[in-house]
């Protein structure tokens, strides 16, 4: 029983980290309509900044630089590239982000080399025990931070002018613009928020139980895509639910791999999130909490 509980907790805490990334996808998509294929590089960038800076300026200042750096890069990508696209269409923007991803990821990979860069996180390899179940401290912290982050997001979107403006801009850009909402500002805020969330996720994905920063961390963004999609493209709460669902699925499929292998083949843990995503899309084409896409006549 405690084994099942441990796997569930593992899955949920990993899922919360995924949901940070998924929420980043959702926020960028709603604020600028961009499918951000470079999100993985930004996750990596945030973690990388912390890893190279923590020795000289200490861990917590390095975290601040990491969050700010990831946010700034996001804002810059939007201001310099996305807003200047020759064709402002979703497909074009997605491919543009692929180009950005190639450039960022190649440069980061070159800098990281074959080292496993450690973050110097103060929680190290410690664990927290609940009865006979143990969880890495980093994971428990991640869960806490994620809950706080989503609380802050909820406050921003429902209680502040900026957040309400962002929702208005997402719902109907031109009208919002006529009402005096500056779309450039809501877009920049969206990219900055996504960058911060990505960097936070990056830090938790590269500290214990993962050993440190390696280029493969960028791939974790792809694992968050099913979470984002099945939650609904434009919904932050959806991203949370999606993240939890995907985290749980992966952990359980992996944890019980030896029992499932005869039916599903080996390595099903990698595909399971996508299968869940396709099934959910079949039943609810706009995701669990996504708003129905309007059919314009």
């Amino acid at each position: 029983m405690s084994y099942l509980l441990e796997q569930v907790l593992n899955g949920l805490s990993y899922g919360l980290v995924l949901s940070l990334i998924a929420a980043g996808f959702a926020i960028v998509f709603t604020s600028t309509g961009v499918l951000n294929f470079a999100h993985g590089s930004i996750v990596l960038l945030g973690a990388y900044l912390v890893a190279v800076l923590h020795d000289s300026i200490g861990f917590w200042p390095a975290v601040l630089v990491g969050l700010a750096g990831a946010a700034l890069v996001g804002v810059a990508i939007n201001a310099v590239l996305v807003r200047n696209l020759a064709d402002k269409k979703p497909d074009t923007a997605a491919i543009l982000m692929l180009g950005v991803d190639i450039v960022l990821l190649t440069e980061l990979t070159r800098r990281i080399g074959n080292q496993v860069l450690t973050l110097g996180a103060p929680w190290g390899a410690s664990v927290v025990r609940f009865g006979d179940v143990s969880l890495p401290t980093g994971r428990v912290l991640a869960a806490g931070v994620t809950v706080v982050a989503f609380g802050a997001l909820w406050y921003l979107f429902s209680r502040t002018d900026l957040g309400v403006g962002m929702r208005a801009a997402a719902a109907d850009g031109p009208t919002a613009s006529l009402m005096g909402i500056r779309l450039s500002r809501t877009a920049a805020t969206g990219w900055a928020l996504a960058g911060v969330l990505a960097a936070v996720a990056g830090i938790f994905l590269t500290s214990f139980p993962a050993p440190g920063v390696a280029p493969t961390v960028a791939l974790s963004a792809f694992a968050a895509i099913p979470a984002w999609v099945l939650g609904g493209f434009d919904s932050v709460p959806g991203a949370v639910i999606g993240g939890l669902l995907i985290g749980l699925t992966s952990a359980l499929v992996t944890g019980y791999e030896s029992d499932l292998e005869p039916f599903l083949g080996s390595g099903f843990g990698e595909v399971a999130p996508y299968v869940v995503m396709i099934v959910v899309l079949l039943v609810r084409p706009s995701g669990l909490l996504g708003s129905k896409e309007a059919v314009r006549v």
């Binding site: 590239l81 696209l85 020759a86 064709d87 074009t92 491919i95 543009l96 692929l98 180009g99 950005v100 991803d101 190639i102 450039v103 190649t106």
Partner: peptide, 8 residues
């Protein structure tokens, strides 16, 4: 990567 960005 830059070539892709430039074209778009």
């Amino acid at each position: 990567g830059l070539a892709i960005i430039a074209v778009l």
